[in-house]
Simulated scan of single mutants.
Amino acid sequence: MVEVRLENLTKKFGDFTAVNKLNLTIKDGEFLVLLGPSGCGKTTTLRMIAGLEEPTEGKIYFGDRDVTYLPPKDRNISMVFQSYAVWPHMTVYDNIAFPLKIKKVPKEEIDKKVRWAAELLQIENLLDRYPAQLSGGQRQRVAVARAIVVEPDVLLMDEPLSNLDAKLRVAMRAEIKKLQQRLKVTTIYVTHDQVEAMTMGDRIAVMNQGKLLQVGPPTEVYLNPKSVFVATFIGAPEMNILEVSVRENHLEGRGFKIELPQDIMDLLKDYMGKDVLFGIRPEHMIIEGIGEMAHMKRTTKVKGRVDFVEALGTDTIVHVVIGDELIKVKLPGHIPLEVGKEVNVVMDVDRIHIFDKSTEEAIV
């Protein structure tokens, strides 16, 4: 196990910059998730850490050791890919043993380590089978077992659950996280799934267009996004974003007003008369008369009309028109609301976000 440090890491493919001056430290034994949409540079970053891509600029350190230009075999890393990448002509036992045989580990030790890894992944009864005889989840367990059997300093995972069905993904998330906590191996996990990131990561590093936008524990990134991109990428449904103008004692949108306490308006004094972006998550609002307000210390109300109701069983997503804008309100349980009904949307003032319109960076 080691600390991984990336310093000004940059990767260019011709004129295209895939990763742009990335600075990031992954702590010894930490489970860090690289999160972002397709093409944001997260997989390229992982491949540079693995030694499969050579950086255009910057350095990669494992502890105090500069590994920037070392081949993968000299880095003591293991990687689990999106595809299961198991050898179809080998048994489960031989698939798991393969990296140990390459390293010419003694046969007795190979057997001991294979059985140890298989037991951890609960596939010890499958060692004599071939991949074609396994389910997708079982093949992914084989891939993970093969990765940990060499006891790597760094474990790299590139969207390893994306080929599994939804129910199995949820189960495997928990198993991989518990396995990492047991092994205490430094792990870097790439995904575009914000639910995976929130449930698995000790910290999340959000990337977009090759740049690192924010790093922090999942709850911190969720509650205090530093930009509109982070705010809308994390959370389901995504954060409501409304364009408003700053007035003396309120925010004015297209056909609606949002009154806010003076302490918040004071933070916006440099934006007086200017447009800003107002954000609030669907779960940080309720419909007046429906839902619990006790957890809200300060509130503000906006009049609206119910436009559509998504009944999800455990939750209800209410689409509400306020002025000329449409927002979503997430309420717990089954809420039978009539389309067209006039309602008051109650907002938790301490959970609002305001962003600079031009930079899209957080002001409040």
Rank of each mutant, 00 (worst) to 15 (best):
V4Q: 09
F13V: 05
G14Y: 05
T17Y: 13
T17V: 15
A18L: 07
L22E: 06
N23I: 02
E30L: 12
F31K: 05
L35E: 13
T44M: 04
L46E: 11
A50L: 13
L52G: 05
T56A: 06
T56P: 09
T56H: 08
K59L: 08
Y61N: 04
Y61A: 10
G63V: 05
R65T: 15
V67L: 07
V67N: 09
Y69A: 03
R75C: 10
R75S: 08
R75Q: 06
N76L: 07
V80Q: 07
S83D: 03
Y84R: 02
A85D: 03
A85K: 01
P88N: 11
P88Y: 11
H89R: 13
M90A: 10
P99C: 12
L100A: 11
I102A: 14
K103Y: 10
K103E: 10
K104R: 15
V114W: 11
E119S: 12
E119N: 14
E124I: 05
L126E: 04
L126K: 13
R129Y: 09
L134N: 13
G137A: 08
G137C: 04
Q140M: 01
R141Y: 13
A143H: 07
A145H: 10
E151I: 00
M157V: 05
D158G: 05
D165C: 00
A166F: 04
K167I: 13
R173Y: 09
K177G: 03
R182F: 09
L183Q: 06
L183G: 07
K184F: 01
T187H: 14
T187G: 12
I188D: 05
V190Y: 10
H192R: 11
D193I: 14
D193H: 13
D193P: 14
V195C: 10
T199G: 07
M200F: 12
M200V: 12
D202C: 12
R203C: 10
M207H: 14
L212I: 12
G216K: 08
G216V: 07
P218M: 11
V221G: 06
L223P: 00
K226F: 02
A236V: 10
N240G: 03
I241H: 03
V244M: 02
V246Y: 01
N249I: 04
G255I: 12
K257E: 13
K257G: 00
P261S: 09
I264L: 14
Y271C: 02
V276R: 00
F278W: 08
F278L: 12
G279Y: 10
G279Q: 04
I280K: 05
I280N: 04
P282L: 08
P282R: 03
H284N: 13
I290C: 00
G291T: 06
V302K: 05
G304D: 01
V309I: 11
V309S: 06
I317H: 05
H319R: 02
D324L: 14
E325C: 03
P332F: 04
H334W: 09
P336R: 04
E338H: 08
V339P: 01
V345Y: 11
R351G: 01
I352V: 14
H353T: 02
S358I: 04
A362F: 00
A362H: 01
